[in-house]
Amino acid sequence: MMRNYWEIYKKFVSTSTTMAMSFRLPFVLLIVMDLCFYFTSLLTIDFIFNHIQHMGPWNRDQLMFFMAFMLLLDNLHMTFVSESFWELSMMLKTGQFDYVVLRPMNTLFSTFFRFFRPSTMLNFPIAVGVLIHYGLKIGLAPSAWALLPVFVILSFILLIQVEFIITTSMFWVIDGLGINFLRMQFQKLARWPNFVYASMPRRVFTLIFPILVIGSAPVSFLIDQSKWYWPLGLVTSIIVLGFVLSFLWTTGIRRYESASS
């Protein structure tokens, strides 16, 4: 069963790569696009800290570390799932989603992991490098280094769960393009630490719709390991959202009306 999915995933990767390689210019431009994004994101923080000492409880390097963490998540997101969201909105519009429904396998898997972006994967070492650089600067403890990869994976899982849940609304609102833009708004919100937000939105986005947990939980804990409640919150969020997602997705698929050909 797992092996079969692994076999399928390998095919997804290889077909996506074949396709991506046949368009050479976009392949290169995607890399440039991401690098521009990383660069301006980091530069924004740098410029702000030219004029201030602290933001909330954090100094320049700590905030840079946070941003580097979020950029690495973005890199994983761009590589493994991002394209599928846009494809889904197209497939729902054209009725091409029929074929996803027909295949004998988990539809969440075949919807969201279908498209792989090899070009963004080439930026992976850069994203990791930046994270390590700032990790060294803030002097992470050895135990924190060991936990870092685990947190990257957990945060990535929470991020995509949140995004899958948002995307499920495409079954109700056929215009999926708008939903994709909404999804990107939430990404933007999560790209700043939770303490930036006033208390009301902070509570809503931490406890009810936990997008601020994605970055703030692991980084807060890695910086100060006495804050054990953060990783606990992260894991709890993943479990709860897992149930919410599977319920919503099943309901959504039943709502699917299939565009007439």
Partner: peptide, 28 residues
Amino acid sequence: AYRLNFLLQIIGPTLVFFFIKYNLWSSI
């Protein structure tokens, strides 16, 4: 005609962007 799309694509991002900046600078 694409009202929801329009709301989510053009107006939403601008508002969210503003919301973030408002919070960010208040916090700074």
